[in-house]
Design a binder for these strands. Sequence first.
DNA 1: TAGATTGTTAATCGATTAACAATC
DNA 2: TAGATTGTTAATCGATTAACAATC
Lengths: 209, 209
Amino acid sequence: MAKNDISMAVIKRLPRYYRFLGEMKRAGVQRISSGELSKRMGFTASQIRQDLNCFGGFGQQGYGYNVAQLYKEIGKILGVDKKAKTVLIGAGNLGRAVAAHMSFEERGFNLIGIFDKNEALAGQLVRNLPIRHIDGLYDFCRDNAPTVAVLCIPGEHAEVITDELVRLGVKGFWNFSHYDIAAHHPNVAVENVHLSDSLMTLSYYINNL
Amino acid sequence: MAKNDISMAVIKRLPRYYRFLGEMKRAGVQRISSGELSKRMGFTASQIRQDLNCFGGFGQQGYGYNVAQLYKEIGKILGVDKKAKTVLIGAGNLGRAVAAHMSFEERGFNLIGIFDKNEALAGQLVRNLPIRHIDGLYDFCRDNAPTVAVLCIPGEHAEVITDELVRLGVKGFWNFSHYDIAAHHPNVAVENVHLSDSLMTLSYYINNL
DNA sequence: TAGATTGTTAATCGATTAACAATC
DNA sequence: TAGATTGTTAATCGATTAACAATC
């Protein structure tokens, strides 16, 4: 697991490769060339070969790539076979939707606890997990040692919760809040989902078509 | 609204500027220099000046930028003062959360209709809008002429719906599905939100810390 | 005026694309 | 073997950073 020097641009494209290869595999495609992949995915063939070669020579000259093998390799690189113990904080509309909707298990995560500060939600089941009151977070983490947290809470509450989670050993955050975790905890992995930023970007596009 | 040549990298940063300036304005900050903004936002001062200058000289030498004015200007560039009529397709967990949770009005949109193929949901209120059966989409669009659609449906159903919406005059899509709208409709604005890709990116990060 | 800070040009850096020798 | 297609190096392109003259 040495820290490696793959560029962020490449990493962000990996899930897309994984997705397309999965579709092809399910459709029964056995082999694919970078040229054919290029047509389907909208990246240049050159970029595809360059990207895949960051991780090793998965292809074969004169033949192309074996779909099933490449799919498996990229899955391994992404760590989708892992089972990182994960807690979700904030069971409002968004938190419940994320908990119920995402295939955590297929992507390297195991959701083991859902927390909210609202007493009224306590006990309600989401994806077969009871919503727990946030006061129980400390004990739960001490007992279960989750390494990942999904943050579906308003930015105002994120600082306190994040500090505590990091203290309790959480190493990765899927952050739906506007709190800048990376700025405060430089040694932690953070992936931000800023839905409102995305929506404003769309606003720009439609007003500049 | 001439098509202009601002790079995508700059556009994607605008919502972040808007967010930080909004916070500062609310906190009573009147003026800010690119150097000070740099510290707060984590972009270089040089990049900030370069970015803002794409849209005109908002600053003043020796002084910096007026927070309230800059906030307003960026809002105008992003079109947050618009009221693009918007329909949301797919009222499952994710669709309902997006409908209930997002501040469409503060970002240039006006959500006017929610649709789902599930008869059982029909009539249920989300954000004071009744969920309508998808069969009523054609008539609704003919009568109300929405220009934006939020797609919260599985990829398998997206092609048919998207084709119809484009025919009915929809010009922008906020796309939560894995269907590649842009590839099929090149003249339409598309902003993709691929939550599962984002989650897999996090998986990569935590496994390569 | 002197100090500060922008607007803008030039230099650097990184990412994408093109080309082609290696090889299956 | 001949044809195809990769792996990889070199060329191009674009984005970021640095520098500084303009100017408030």
